[in-house]
Amino acid sequence: MIPGDLKYTKDHEWAKIDLNHAVIGITDHAQKELGDITFVEVPETKTILKQGGALSTVESVKAASDIYAPVSGEIIEANEALADKPELINQSPYEKGWLCKIKLSDPKEASKLMDARQYEEYLNTLKK
């Protein structure tokens, strides 16, 4: 199921936006496409990112996927547990598999992202 309280990008990142902060991760669809995740480049705190800028890389045995920031801002917290347990993204993409927390520099940007219904429609177009 696609959680209703999150925002989504076409690159299959999700963002949980709460006033001035956003928690970022990759969607269930993204983790399924990658398969067993073997490595996550844990984002570095204090990094300042623009919307769409490279945030991290997530790897499986046969693929590597670049993760882009859904929103602009500064990384204030990262999910260090992923360094030892990259499989958390497979097991729990929307909860334990979160990547980082960003302090928003432009909260208005969130309006450019898809909501759950739009993301679901987008996934359907990909299937075709």
């Binding site: 067993d36 073997t38 490595f39 790897e59 499986s60 045995v61 990259p86």
Partner: peptide
Amino acid sequence: KRLDEVKAAK
């Protein structure tokens, strides 16, 4: 037999 490539990479 088939080898665990995920384990090898992790």
